[in-house]
Amino acid sequence: MFAKTRTNAESASAMKMESIWRRVLGGGQAPIWIATVVLFAVSPLVAPGSLKASALLSMLPFAAVLAIAAVGQMLVIQQRGLDLSVPGMMAFGAGLVTGLSQWYGWPVWASIAGAIILPAIAGLISGIIVTRFGVMPLVVTLGMNAILLGTVFALSNGTPAGAPQEIADFTKGSVGIVPNALIIAVVVIVVGGFIAQRSIVGRKLTAVGVSERAASAVGFRVTLYQTMAYALAGAAFGIAAILYAGYVTTPPLFYGDKYLLPTITAVVLGGTALTGGRAALISTGVAALFLTQLGQLLRAVGWQESFQLIAQAVVLLIVILARAIVPMVSSSIKARREATESQTVRA
């Protein structure tokens, strides 16, 4: 009897310890906040000056672009898809916002609207093909990517255009010391987060992502919500592209390629499971900040672009491996403890 109580007390404290490290490594949103704080803390040690205002101000707009694009990717991943059309979407958005005004003479507001609405329509088409025709998201978005790149090529005739002056001024501008691009990103994430967490639409999107079958049994229009996720993702990619175009003024035609993997990494780092379900919008934004600062830091210590690709791939692999291994290990520890416990009881 005495022996048994002692084991219980021990195992209770062990369990508590374990649940802490499992929470830190195995999933959830806490790890990315910690990692980001740590990264910024060590930044000055690795590269002196990397926390200077000028360095931060040049990094933040890119973090904003990635954060908004990652929100789009997250919407699709929440529905257990994966959007491989990010490069095409980003190129399309930038091509529209620059090309529509430069070559087709659209007013600035119209080219901004076009750069949001047309990618959203492309996303809608992908969504309809996925949900109505039952084609794998991967194949659809891969094909859509090529179609969009072709469209960008046709739109620009192979020559990148410059962003309208108003947009360039706005994105490079700031309110006080806060860059406008960052404000847009925060607005998108806060509004998006509010819709995702608090609105009926957001709840239903979550429900469909968690379990298509349960949502269907409750009577939700499953395909409608899934399709909507792809369309909203398209709009997010469009907004990100406008900011990017404004900030770099004349974006290369196919700059979008370098955003594919980081969007996925940011979503995974942010704590949204690749198997769908609850979306973690705010931490996805934090993850975007983390990734951009990491890139900045590596650049500061002299890593070239190609090394950065390797670093991103390694970060992503480590995160998904940790997410897979930690639950495995912790459940085997639990099983072993239960086995020893039952032995103690028998003894």
Partner: peptide
């Protein structure tokens, strides 16, 4: 542009 469009459209 057709170099992109064609494979994209045929795949989808």
């Amino acid at each position: 542009a057709w170099g992109y469009w064609l494979p994209g459209f045929i795949t989808v």
